[in-house]
Design a protein around this nucleic acid. Sequence first.
DNA 1: CCGCGTTGCTTGACATACTTATCGCCGGTG
DNA 2: CACCGGCGATAAGTATGTCAAGCAACGCGG
Lengths: 153, 153
Amino acid sequence: MMTAMSAAGADDADHAADEAARRSVPGAGGAWSTQLNALGGFIRAQRQLAQLSLREMAALTSVSNAYLSQVERGLHQPSLKVLHSIADALQLSTEQLLAQAGWVGATAAGPAAPEPAAGGVDTEAAIRNDPRLTPEQRAALLGVYRSFVDGDG
Amino acid sequence: MMTAMSAAGADDADHAADEAARRSVPGAGGAWSTQLNALGGFIRAQRQLAQLSLREMAALTSVSNAYLSQVERGLHQPSLKVLHSIADALQLSTEQLLAQAGWVGATAAGPAAPEPAAGGVDTEAAIRNDPRLTPEQRAALLGVYRSFVDGDG
DNA sequence: CCGCGTTGCTTGACATACTTATCGCCGGTG
DNA sequence: CACCGGCGATAAGTATGTCAAGCAACGCGG
């Protein structure tokens, strides 16, 4: 039930828009989760744009209509699961939702010192010889790998 | 409970690798233990890369070391708040973490086609062929490795 | 007027994210 | 040796996300 099939009722969206306008969020004055309100508003707008009711979207996302309602009004911060389901149901990319929420757009880093070399046979050896890994990265990756094989035997 | 061998060394890393994962999600099941392991492994690798202890990172992220430990071992799914804090502390972009967790990149609307990373196939092949790794571990390790060579250039 | 079906929203119970306190282990110092 | 301080991992407790059920308002047909 993740795949969007749309074509729900094709009633009239004017109603939905109207209702939303009337109920609009109290917003003004509350300086606390602006981001949540933005996210919720965005989701609500997109949902109405897709002409979905809360219950329809609930069915599509496997999330209860009740919780969707709360999320749309900025009363709760949805988890990644839910966020992803919503994005899927609305045929948006998760990144769009996250950007709306203001949660993406941070730093980036990455020093590199690649060097030409040739491969190996064992995984450990391959990691050690990998030219694209910095010494630190090698150590880290090796640590993860060894943690795996250590538990395995 | 499980094979408790502890791990204390400052520059030694081991542990993880657990297949006992029971997730009772009502409505729809999930196969995300793999993604959680990948995310956790990635975070741990990055933390070790930055030469941070769990407690140091806890101070940096305002998240308890205990919870960080569990996240790194794939026992819990961190919320956006926490994820963002971690990304910030490790000087990564939140997108990288999300991509690592597999939560972005496969939407119904977009063309889901991540590059197959043409080029140094040596290490990747070695990981894929390693008989000592379980499929889940393979996926996690591959994720970490690719995050290194891909996001860092 | 009535019921019937729809909409969005609120409440109370449960599962999960997260914290504070503690454990076992190791390295250094007296 | 005992003691201290750091490390990662665990146990029990608190906060928060999430669900199932029920409510008030609107529109439609009798």
